[in-house]
Design a protein around this nucleic acid. Sequence first.
DNA 1: GCCGTTTTCGGCCCGACTGTTTTCAGTCG
Length: 571
Amino acid sequence: MDNGEVARILNTMADMLEIKGDNPFRIRAYRLAAQNIEGLAEDVSTLIVQQTLEEIPGIGKDLASKIREIVTTGTFQEYERLKAQIPSGVVELLKIPGVGPKTAQLLYERKGIDSIARLEAAARANELRGLPGIKAKTEENILRGIEMLKRASGRMPLGLALPLVREIIARLRQVKGVTRIECAGSVRRMKDTVGDIDILAVSAAPGKVMDAFVALPLVREVLAHGETKSSVMTRQGIQADVLVVDPKAFGAAWVYFTGSKAHNIHLRDMAKKKGLKISEYGVFAERTGKRIAGREEEEIYEALGLPYIAPELREDTGEVEAALKGQLPDLITADDIRGDLHVHSTWSDGAHTIKEVVEAARRRGYRYIAITDHSKGLGIVRGLAAEDLTKQSEEINRLNQGLRDFRILTGIEANIRADGTLDLPNGVLAKLDFVIASVHSAFRQDQQTMTERIVRAVSNPYVRVLGHPTGRLLGEREPYDLDFDRLLDAARQHQLAMEINASPLRLDLNDAHARRAKEAGVPLVINTDTHALAEFDHIHLGVATARRAWIEKKDVLNTLPLKQLLKRLAR
DNA sequence: GCCGTTTTCGGCCCGACTGTTTTCAGTCG
C-alpha cells in the first residue's frame, strides 16, 4: 500500500461524503490529509511504525486510526459502509467538468444514473431536462464535459506547460491597454506537473483582454467568457484561465491565485487572528473594512508580519512558520550554477560533438562540464567500452589544452546492472574525473532487491553521483520501489552526491525527496542530462525543483568553483 | 475531522461565472 493509494482512498471518501452532503469541513479534512500524505517523501507505513502519523498537519487521532486501518487492511470500515450506499459509478460522475456532488446525487436519486456511460445516453436522449435546475443547456454542458473528460490526459509536466504559458503571455501583452501580465498557480510555484494554467493581467480595457484570449489560435474550446475572467481548453489539452485585476489589488490577487490553497488558508487564518481579512482584493481591517495592502505581494506578507515567501515554497509545508522565525532558506538560483555534470555527446546518444557542447556551455557562462556518455552495457544506445573511453579522454585533453577558464571533465554515466555491479571495471573508472551511476534497466525489482542493488552501486569507490535516483518518468513510469531512507544512509556513509536531474519528464529527485536528502546531509548536484544543446535550458527546471526542496547554494556541489568541486568529489 | 497566545467548543476563505433562476444554487479555483 503506497502513499498514492492511501491518498486515493481518502479522496474517494471525501467524494462520497460530498455526494451525501456531509459537513464540508469534515470533507476538507479528508482532502487535506490525502494531499499531505501524497506529498510525503517517506512511506506512510514507516510513519505508522514510528508512531508519528499525527505529526502530519491535518491528521488527528481519528484520521490516524483510519489510515492505520487502510495500511493494514487495504480499506476502512466507514469507507466500506459508504461504498455500499453509493455506487462507484456515481463517484466517477464527479470527474466530469461541470458535474459536482449535488448534480451527481440528483442524477442518481432521480434517474438511477450510476455511470458516465448511462449519463451520456440519458443526456443524448434529452431525458435529463425537467429535473430541477436542468434544461437543454445543462444537458449540452454535461455532454461537452464528458467529451472533455474523454480527451483529458490529466496533469501536464511543467516543462511542457511553460512554453504554452510564455506564448499566451507574449500574445496578450500585445493587447492594447495591458500594463502588466504574469503567470500564477502551480506553474509559478514550479510544481513538477500542473493541472491548469493561471494568468493574471492588469488592463484599462479588460474586455479586450478577454476577447483576445478566447480568440487565441491555441484555444480549442471556450469554457467561460466573462468580463474579467475567462477559461479555455487549449489544443494541448490543458485548461487555461486569464483574469484581469485592479492594479491596486494585483499583489493580493497574485498571492491568491499563486496558491497553494493550503498556503492561502494558512495566511487567512493568521490574518483573522490579527483582526484582518485577506481576499484576492487585498488585506482589510476586519472592523473598518479599510484596505491595508494589495498592490504588491510583499505588502500582503508584510501586513501579516512576514517576510516575502518565494512562490516555490508556498505549499504550507513549514514555510510560514520558518518565515515567522526569520529562518527561510536563502534559495539557490540558476545563476549559482557553474557547470553541468551530466552531458552526452555524439560519442553515445547525444546529438552534438564535445566541441559543440563545450561552446554552448561556455556561452551560458559555465566554467566546467563533465562529459558523461553512456557505458557499453546499455543495449539501447551505443555505449562506450574501455577503449572508446581512452580515445574520448584523448580528445577531451586536446580540447582542454585550447581552453582558458574552462575545464572539460572526463566522465561516464555508468550503468548499474541488475545485481548492483557497474558495467565498467574499476580500473577504467579510476582514470576518469567523474562517474555518475544510474539505473537504466530491470526497473521492476522488488524493494529489497532494488535497494540493495543501488546501495551496492553507490558503495563503489569511484562513483561520485547517483543519477536520476528514483527512475520516474512523468506520465510514463513510476519510480522504482526503493527504501529511500536506506539509500540516504548509504549515500551519507559513502560521501556520495545525489542528482536532481532537470530533464522535464524526470525532475528526479523530486522536491520531497531532494528536501529529505538535504535534511539527511547528502549533497546534491543539479544536471540537465543534455542530449541536444537546447536542453541546457532545462537547468531552470532542476533549479526550480531544488528551490521547492528548500535547497540553498551551499547544498549543491556544481555551484562550487572548479578547484573546490574537484576537492569535494575526491573520496 | 482538525485545531487552540482569545477557544477543548465553535470556528473552519471567498468571489466569478453559468444556467437556472425572479434572487439563487452549483461549480470551480
